[in-house]
Design a protein around this nucleic acid. Structure first.
Lengths: 338, 338
DNA sequence: AACGTGGCATGCAACGTTGCAACCCGGCGG
DNA sequence: CCGCCGGGTTGCAACGTTGCATGCCACGTT
């Protein structure tokens, strides 16, 4: 079977030059005579030459692939993030590849030390089950950037927003609208990912600053971050007869589930109950009522993650692993302020 | 710089056998003496050997990569589909790679005849701007499967649901709940993708079957399929004073936008206005009220697309390009039946 | 006229893997 | 005893590309 596309040798033969010279033209090497360059270029175009990625990869060690390793791409937050990452990767000449873990520890580990047989130049990962020591103890493979809180300052690159501050700001907003019994939905004590813990900290700080009591019954853990989990948490609150006047959910998905159950239960939002989320996914903007949320700068997260990988891939060791903090802002909408 | 992982040569040296024999062990070639196999396997494990994907690709011509070429991954429908595709790809030893086109013709063409320099084994594509002739006129590159209607029966593989029937069923449902002035939102006359056209056909058929008049003012085109477009269309309906008692949107995203505007305008759904969508994305399930929709069997779509690629990749030409029809069902929820 | 110089072009080797053909050797039938 | 057979193992070559070193030529300088 012949190759699907012309290769350097075939172009060289047709143009009457050496393979090396064609390669020089393709790669833009300056020491090629103008008329030679032009002739070779013409043949390249004629034959529709496209460089063979496998050969380049084998030769140069770069595949041009970056892996996004996440629990699930169907989740709106990761979907939106993947969109930005794909765009940014494109700008840098990379292609994004998606690997789903389902939050499973074994699968996370498996992907960590060798996505597709060392075929990627770098990994952008959102770990749920692996702890920082797991993440560090791996063969000298492709550079790794983590998304979300990791308690691994100075040991691993990770991109985050200031979750404590963001949660505090949002909670303060709820307090300013007159709420005093604010539930927090979304604790994830079973995860190594420290994001939920930081948001809980911010929430508690805001309560303390306002002199509000801190009621453990209002701090509700969830199994996952799906709408169904938010719905279940809300049903639990209602069934237990807990009189909350606001719920702060640690993701928009949870909030949308909670909102659905609350309104289905006859509660008016925001009059009877304020509902707020986190992530600013597009669904929230069009919910009824639209959802107040913390909006992380997702394009900036994508840029930061890929910049970080680019630095690690550049010759030289680059700077020490760092915590890259990205901007966020409060997006106040109808679900908390009617 | 040494290679990041042990290669066959290093393993062979350590195990005291030839490179070829190690390769035989790795690939499970049967003619290897049991004790040799065992010894080599031990060394493989010790050294943490992982086959080099680039070399395999160069040698064997298979990269193990499948590209998903879609307008945008952030769209919930494509996000959910990508999740299923990634899972199914995984099962078949493939990895999914995402390329966004933004619906742009040039970008679609570019990706079509050479994603990443012929580095993928197959493409799953949802074209918006390219017509079937464009899609067929391409160098003998990787096999291609299209998602959505293409008017290219027998010429190109494509995976669809029966859009005419589905739209007819949904419209009939609206009629059965007593609606007579049913708007259709989501015509896309500017796209080559024939999906919207088929849904419009089904809609009109149902109206005709019920003996309802067909009012062009109720057939509303949109620029894209985002929530914002659905919202804009709904605002247009309301501003024009058109008295519809139902809107059938050609995607859930459109429906959610329309729903948002309708309820924001004081309309009670479904009492004053029924709203229905298409795609059954998770958002719709948790909307207020939850959204009636056509639910395509997304896992089956993913399976069909990848099975089709697998057939094309198998030795031999395989069956003629076909239209693969996947099941769907009506998901009746609160937005049409209170 | 001999020499250095710099622009341009080329050949060789190697990246890690696998298809192919050959090889060696013990056992068995002629 | 020789030749054949087949299980087990091996070397060679090639996939397409690029780094490195070298070759060649014309021109300008000594």
């Amino acid at each position: 079977m012949s190759s699907v596309t012309a290769n350097l040798r075939q172009v060289a033969e047709r143009a009457g030059v050496s393979v090396r010279t064609v390669s020089n033209v393709v790669s833009g090497f300056p020491l090629v005579a103008p008329q030679t360059r032009e002739r070779v270029q013409r043949v390249l175009d004629e034959m529709g030459y496209r460089p063979n990625a496998a050969a380049r990869h084998l030769r140069g060690g770069r595949s041009g692939l970056v892996a996004l390793v996440i629990p699930e791409i169907a989740s709106p937050y990761f979907g939106e993030l993947a969109g930005h990452l794909a765009d940014e990767a494109e700008k840098r000449g990379w292609t994004l590849l998606v690997q789903q873990t389902g939050g499973d520890a074994r699968r996370e580990r498996e992907l960590l030390d060798g996505v597709r047989g060392q075929a990627v130049d770098g990994l952008v990962m959102s770990p749920w089950a692996l702890c920082p020591t797991d993440l560090r103890r791996r063969p000298d493979a492709a550079p790794l950037v983590l998304l979300g809180e990791q308690d691994a300052d100075g040991l691993l690159d990770h991109v985050v927003i200031d979750n404590v501050a963001a949660a505090r700001e949002l909670t303060r907003h709820l307090i300013e609208t007159g709420r005093t019994r604010i539930a927090a939905i979304g604790l994830q004590p079973h995860l190594t990912n420290g994001t939920a813990a930081r948001r809980l900290t911010g929430y508690r700080q805001a309560l303390a600053e306002a002199g509000l009591p801190h009621d453990p019954a209002l701090e509700i853990p969830v199994a996952q971050l799906h709408r169904a989990d938010g719905a279940a948490a809300m049903r639990g609150l209602l069934a237990a007869g807990i009189d909350a006047d606001a719920v702060f959910c640690f993701s928009d998905q949870l909030a949308l589930g909670a909102l659905h159950v609350a309104t289905g239960h006859g509660l008016r939002v925001p009059a009877d109950l304020a509902v707020a989320g986190f992530d600013d996914v597009e669904d929230g903007r069009y919910a009824n009522p639209s959802l107040t949320t913390v909006s992380p700068d997702k394009p900036a997260i994508a840029r930061a993650a890929l910049d970080c990988l680019a630095e690690r891939l550049a010759p030289g060791t680059g700077p020490a692993p760092a915590r890259h903090i990205v901007a966020h802002h409060l997006e106040i909408r109808g679900s908390t302020a009617g």
